[in-house]
Design a protein around this nucleic acid. Structure first.
Length: 217
DNA sequence: CACCAGGCAAGTA
DNA sequence: TACTTGCATGGT
């Protein structure tokens, strides 16, 4: 079985086991972007509270967020942890959108993916995972998102030895899968679901739904 | 009680 | 280049 066939098999198996994940929860691009920053090293449960709090204060709005005081913003997103840093990160991101993209978040749709990625990576607080999450889940660009779960999954299933960097892991998926936004969207979400359900720690991954897939080899 | 969660940047060697 | 540390709340 080739790597491409194996990856697609794994995807089909996970989809069958868990169903569609309907990622990313969020009604607007801004909500997805805010969530992507707030969920850095933080459980999604705590991020949901922060987003609800932002909505309750009418702050899930580009201009409102841009003008709010950092200290006050930190208090509102406190439940997401690292709230002082994240307040600064959110403001930095919005400030760049304001400066580079002519003052509107909606203009960023008109720019190509590599320019957007490079620009986002230049913002303090935006690393590769956050940038790619925004590209895929907010802007529907065919970019594969890598996180700690992705590496754990590949390692547990002996698809890599643990030495690859972020870009190496991303290239592995993108070189062996059709460049399809919906596929990348669902695959990443399914890997997260798999690891949160079965593969809590390295290197164990017992009673994993993929075991049958391997027995077929 | 300890440990982790859908990371990143800055500092050190 | 390759580690280490600070950031911080809330759930299990």
């Amino acid at each position: 079985m080739t790597t491409k066939q194996r990856l697609l098999n794994i995807f089909e198996t996970l989809l069958l086991a868990f169903g569609k994940r309907h990622w990313w929860p969020g009604e607007t691009e801004l909500e997805v972007i805010v969530g992507a920053i707030l969920t850095q090293n933080t459980s999604w449960r705590n991020v949901e509270k922060a987003i609800a709090n932002l909505k309750a204060n009418d702050l899930l709005d580009f201009d409102a967020l841009l003008s709010i005081d950092n200290y006050e913003l930190g208090g509102i997103i406190k439940s997401s942890g690292f709230y002082n840093q994240k307040a600064i990160k959110l403001k930095s991101f919005l400030q760049v959108i304001h400066n580079v993209f002519n003052g509107s978040i909606y203009n960023i749709k008109n720019y190509d993916t590599s320019f957007l990625r490079k620009t986002m990576l230049g913002i303090n607080g935006i690393g590769p995972e956050t940038a790619d999450s925004i590209l895929l889940y907010a802007l529907n660009r065919p970019v594969f998102v890598v996180d700690s779960y992705t590496k754990r999954f590949l390692y547990n299933h002996k698809l890599y030895d643990g030495s690859w960097k972020y870009d190496d892991v991303q290239n592995f998926f993108m070189a062996n899968l059709p460049r399809d936004t919906h596929l990348f969207n669902e695959f990443h979400a399914l890997i997260v679901c798999l690891c949160q359900t079965y593969c809590k720690k390295l290197p164990e991954c017992l009673s994993c739904p993929l075991n049958n897939e391997y027995q077929r080899e």
